[in-house]
């Protein structure tokens, strides 16, 4: 029977209990994360948004709220097209921010694979 409503776990974040280690680490590798004022221009122009719900504003918010899974899901929809960089009123290099987030999500260490053989043509 459908009552038109249901029960779901609360999405409220308890700022005293959440784990903010990721946010603090990201502040170091991508200091721009603190510059964002959450205007949402990036979300409005995002090419990936219609497919994956990607929104850089929400990604930053989610990281600040300790919601790592949501942030990660959204990031995996970014196409790096760069429109968000061009519209950001705070002049954040959003592409660099996203690349840094994707790269240093698990650790600060720079990891390389020098053995990779692939034809590089640009």
């Amino acid at each position: 029977m459908d009552f038109g409503f249901g029960f779901s776990p609360s999405s409220a974040a308890d700022l005293d209990k959440i784990d903010l280690s990721l946010y603090h680490r990201m502040e170091k590798v991508a200091p721009d994360i603190r510059t964002c004022m959450g205007c949402g221009s990036c979300s409005a122009t995002c090419t990936g948004a219609p497919f994956s719900g990607m929104s850089l504003r929400k990604v930053i918010l989610a990281i600040q709220r300790g919601k790592e899974r949501e942030a990660r899901e959204m990031l995996s929809g970014c196409m790096l097209c760069g429109k968000c960089t061009m519209v950001c009123p705070r002049g954040i290099n959003t592409r660099n921010l996203i690349i840094s987030l994707c790269r240093y999500w698990d650790s600060d260490k720079r990891e390389y694979d020098f053995s990779r053989e692939v034809e590089v043509k640009i």
């Binding site: 995996s76 987030l101 994707c102 790269r103 390389y112 590089v120």
Partner: peptide, 9 residues
């Protein structure tokens, strides 16, 4: 291209 990423789209 040599870099490894934690999140791969």
């Amino acid at each position: 291209a040599t870099r490894k990423y934690a999140i791969n789209q």
